[in-house]
Design a protein around this nucleic acid. Structure first.
Length: 112
DNA sequence: GTTGGGGCCGTCA
DNA sequence: CTGACGGCCCCAA
């Protein structure tokens, strides 16, 4: 596993239940602001689906991944619902569920 | 709503 | 190194 992937997984772990983040956000949080695409790549190889909730990661439009790693979009949708996230037509309301990058950064290491 | 183009990034063959 | 491939992103018609 590469450094990049680790960062991505750690970033994903920070997303609280009931919230979602975009690939861009994850990329930035991981320290690779423009690597949204690579993030998707990394998530597809998610080694620990139970710990890393890759379902909480959606694209910039709030749409679900077309090729979710485990069971496809249906599974991703199911998990989101289980998280309390309302999903319609494989899409979520970003205004409502998207977490602020600032909030995510709080979760990382120390913070005053 | 759609399509098309450009750009950006990390992996792997 | 080079080229191809993605769970992407952004902008313009």
């Amino acid at each position: 596993m590469t450094e990049f992937e680790r960062n991505v997984y750690e970033a994903v772990k920070l997303i609280p239940q009931g919230k979602v983040a975009t690939y861009g956000q994850i990329a930035e949080l991981a320290g690779y602001p423009r690597a949204a695409r690579a993030v998707g790549n990394a998530l597809h190889r998610n080694p620990d689906e139970t710990n890393v909730h890759c379902n909480r990661v959606v694209n910039a439009d709030g749409r679900l991944a077309k090729s979710f790693g485990f069971g496809g979009p249906d599974e991703q949708r199911r998990r989101l619902i289980a998280d309390g996230v309302y999903v319609v037509n494989y899409r979520v309301d970003l205004e409502e569920y998207r977490i602020d990058l600032n909030e995510l950064k709080k979760g990382r290491s120390g913070r005053p």
